[in-house]
Write a protein that binds this DNA or RNA. Structure first.
Lengths: 213, 213
DNA sequence: CTCCTTATTGGACCTTGAGCCAATAGAAGT
DNA sequence: ACTTCTATTGGCTCAAGGTCCAATAAGGAG
């Protein structure tokens, strides 16, 4: 992943627009640029691995609506944020675009200043998303390296149970719980219960109901 | 706070529109409705205490732009979510509205179905916001009931320090740390370290840097 | 089939960390 | 002077973590 340069992926069926945008962004403003003429082209292409990017989408693409393309891409592993551009559009369409998370929705002729601000913001959000996804990934991987029993013990621990309560709930001895617990701490690379709770919460570990007290 | 009924606050300078919207929402659909003819009227009025509500704003108000009004209101304690309605507007305006957090941006003539969906969603989000703000409030209040020393100890505890490390850092004995710690737990109404960490994290208690290891 | 690894379980023992009860001392307010 | 709040500390008990050891069962490699 190249650092310092941000990738902008342009999809527009007008060659002149593509070139204009590419020159503007790629030239003096230091973005890496890739261009596509249609949604199909983009979907078929392989983007640089895990490179967070700003999608610059024309709404009125010949083969697929820009919003539908955006929806299709959202499900992917790629971290991206979208800026729409359009020549002919109405308010409901722009509102729908914003609702599904577009960074901005610009009308042609596009104001350079607006475009740059939007693209920079999109890149920023894409990078942010990429980072938080990677962290998520790492945590999930660590969690899946736990054995079923360890995961069970972890769930109880972060629910606030004492070892003896966990032992009773799982019908094993307290000593065994301690062993599992120690393994969990070691595998997840945390040194304290505090860190363990934060990590588990971030990973969305299900909290169990407290016992009747 | 009345339960079960959601409040919709309508601001529009056209009496006929006000009445139409009020009748539609207040009648068969069971919303509580309040209407205002201008931004000033709304700002001067006192809304039911802490009642989460849906703001239904005409964008083209005589005295103040709908978006500016929304911005003014955001800073208040009231939990509200906004749906804009407009007769004459352009895409940049609708995009700006969505950027500042509008739930929807509808064009006249307003489709009843769309309006209802938007209003319901706005009410849902307003209630949600209200709840999370109340929780925030409660936590902040509890935190401020801690003495300075207790807050200091809390900060260290949720940073993963051991009692002896805290004692050394604060230059007091370990026993003292334990007492402060117990008081913190009691005042915040938590029974375990796990809960304490979650509560502190939600309240944004600053984590201290770990000691050199 | 045997050997090896992993997961799960558990006991005895010891060290450290944390929680509970009681208590003192100073400062501030009534 | 008396009460209240805050900060402080000691002693005792319980919880948690570590060490050393060990048994059982499942799954693969050779």
């Amino acid at each position: 992943m190249k650092e310092g340069r941000n990738l902008v992926v342009i999809v527009d069926d007008e060659p002149s627009i593509r070139k204009g945008l590419a020159r503007l962004l790629g030239g003096s403003h230091g973005f890496d640029v890739m261009t596509f003429a249609s949604a199909q082209e983009l979907l078929a292409a392989s983007l640089p691995d895990d490179e967070p990017c700003c999608l610059l989408l024309d709404v009125n693409l010949p083969d697929l609506n820009g919003l539908e393309l955006q929806t299709k891409l959202l499900g992917r592993k790629h971290a991206m944020a979208t800026v729409f551009i359009t020549g002919y559009a109405d308010i409901p369409l722009s509102v729908r675009a914003m609702k599904i998370g577009a960074i901005d929705f610009l009308t042609k002729p596009v104001d350079e200043e607006d475009l740059l601000i939007a693209v920079q913001e999109a890149c920023r959000q894409a990078r942010q998303l990429s980072i938080s996804r990677q962290e998520d990934e790492t945590i999930k991987k660590q969690l899946s390296s736990l054995t079923p029993r360890e995961q069970e013990v972890l769930a109880h621990v972060v629910s606030g149970f004492l070892n003896k309560q966990i032992a009773y709930a799982l019908n094993i001895s307290e000593k065994t719980v301690k062993v599992h617990r120690a393994r969990v701490m070691q595998k997840l690379g945390v040194a304290s219960l505090v860190e363990l709770v934060r990590l588990a919460d971030n990973a969305g570990v299900r909290k169990l109901p407290l016992p009747a007290e």
